[in-house]
Write a protein that binds this DNA or RNA. Sequence first.
DNA 1: ACACTGTACGAACGGTCGTACACTCATCTC
DNA 2: GAGATGAGTGTACGACCGTTCGTACAGTGT
Lengths: 233, 233
Amino acid sequence: MTTETPTTPSGSAARTPTDAPGDATADGRRLRGDRSRRAVLDLAVQDASVRGLEALTLGSLAARLPVNKSGIAGLFGGKEGLQLAAVEHARGMFVDAVVVPAREAPPGLARLWSLVRCWSDYSRRRVFAGGCFFRTVEVEFDTQDGAVRDAVVAAHRDWTSYLRRHAELAVGAGELAEGTDVDQLAFEITAMLNAANDGSLLLGEDAVYDRALAAVRGALAARGADPAALAAG
Amino acid sequence: MTTETPTTPSGSAARTPTDAPGDATADGRRLRGDRSRRAVLDLAVQDASVRGLEALTLGSLAARLPVNKSGIAGLFGGKEGLQLAAVEHARGMFVDAVVVPAREAPPGLARLWSLVRCWSDYSRRRVFAGGCFFRTVEVEFDTQDGAVRDAVVAAHRDWTSYLRRHAELAVGAGELAEGTDVDQLAFEITAMLNAANDGSLLLGEDAVYDRALAAVRGALAARGADPAALAAG
DNA sequence: ACACTGTACGAACGGTCGTACACTCATCTC
DNA sequence: GAGATGAGTGTACGACCGTTCGTACAGTGT
């Protein structure tokens, strides 16, 4: 992946191998298939955010959709194909829910803080029924390897490097203290956000989101950020 | 659970319903059973820390042990019984690996910092093959309910309340600033430790443990802790 | 008209899961 | 001794898993 910036919700996410470029033609068959794929994935990411990608079941999905079990298998080429497509689909939803709204703030510290707030809202709003989709699947594929794990890791790196980039911009613009360890900062920010997500799910306490925001605000202030730039939630 | 203090590794963890008190007699049959249970659980917690408790399989466990598949089922009364026993077994191992060693430090700030360092070591040493056992199963049972989830939540509360208690002691002893929000502090500490565990597993970077320790040290110092009391890792 | 492609179906496949049951054997109780 | 108890085995069962196959049909191109 060359783009450092998370791309807009991948318009053409999961496609069959033979995907010759330049076919912008509207094939009725493909349209129908894409609509079916979309319906399956909308359900699959919700399920996976709760139970994980391994717990996804072709039969269970098919039972709740006007699609046959073997139809789903054919649509994605098998279960692993479905899992990979689900990761990509979730990535698009994440970008829509977090990255795009945060773009209203200018690059640098403002964008960084906006990302933190948008992520908190994204988790709190339960865009995915099981909290952040990627939290679930990251822990699930922690210690395995294969294509799915690679996709999960790639999504994770994409997100953290985006955070890190805007931290660097903030340092360059003098909004954060010179010499700030942006890796350390990104680590602390993601740690707080993830902890809020997990705590909210496990204990049902909503206060954890405020705790996370307060902690991030503290981490930024400790690095010289203007407190006025860190509007309250 | 009335004890605020994590108990020593539960000597009699998983027992069959009829468990009349006062039977300290050494029944040869029971001894044999306990030995078998222990062997099964030693394997089960390792598996579960990697793949989760739902992915545990009686057949897979039995294939690697001198025990029959239905033998395991009988030993624990079924799969859920095995899962519950695994949580209890892991709890004991956690106490042995983290709580007991940390007891060398006196209560208060020193104990708190010792717990942080011991937890970091516990995760880094891979006491469980899949990193912290409880991280895996917490995320797994985030959004479900049932006896297993309750056990996981109880273990979680046990740990965090233990942290919080020593934070309170530190405040009371003047080692941390008066008015310190101990819930916030406990939140930040667990967030950092968990993030180190997860990051180490997902990305294979060992540096995250140092990042976590540095962040916790910062969080404690910001609350007035004597930097000299926070020995380096 | 024809061949070709992609979606979708229904049925069947081999495999694995957890559970249940009947049974043997060692051990403890009375 | 007799009888109860618990560990452990072996077999069988029903349920569900992902995959595969043959088939039908709609849409596209020539």
